[in-house]
Design a protein around this nucleic acid. Structure first.
Length: 154
DNA sequence: GCCAACGTTGGC
DNA sequence: GCCAACGTTGGC
């Protein structure tokens, strides 16, 4: 099993939006960065992911979800009315992928970015790296457990 | 709103 | 292939 951290702006699509979807399931669409896309293509059904709220008053990890469908073409890349439309993505070999995620838990309290930075054992977290902008990053098991422990402790 | 960091684009 | 310009991300 693999562990991931996935960012989204709560003003666009937050964890409460995911929880409200039918079955708590949604396609994680709109990713337009090759490195992030490649990580999504590595995801396996049953992998676990943390939901991170970015560009908001209190950025941080707000809950967790499960990968329920492995990578397939992102339909929004072919939709001219979608903000993530990509006119240069070939139909026969789509450039962008999505995975389907399923809501698992919303933490009572956000594990804030400040709290993550204050935790010495999480110093290698990719999202804490200076200038990091990747919206999808892998976690190792210790990081996953560490963040869940912080969520339980709050 | 500001700004640092980074990815992408496009001229050459 | 280089690199300047530009756009985006995301914390503050």
């Amino acid at each position: 099993m693999n562990y991931w951290l996935m960012k989204s702006e709560p003003g666009v699509f937050g964890i409460d939006d995911l929880a409200r979807e039918p079955g708590g399931r949604a396609a994680w669409d709109g990713v337009r960065n090759y490195q992030a896309r490649n990580f999504m293509r590595e995801m396996k059904r049953g992998d676990q992911a943390l939901f991170y709220h970015s560009s908001c008053a209190t950025p941080g990890v707000v809950g967790r979800m499960t990968i329920v469908r492995e990578a397939y073409p992102d339909p929004t890349q072919f939709d001219p009315d979608d903000p993530h439309y990509d006119a240069r993505s070939p139909r026969e070999s789509p450039r962008w992928s999505v995975v389907d995620v399923e809501f698992a838990q919303r933490f009572t309290d956000t594990v804030t970015l400040a709290r993550l930075r204050a935790e010495p054992t999480l110093s290698e977290l990719l999202i804490l790296r200076r200038g990091n902008r990747l919206s999808v990053t892998p976690l190792d098991r210790a990081q996953w457990e560490g963040i869940l422990a912080l969520a339980r402790a709050s």
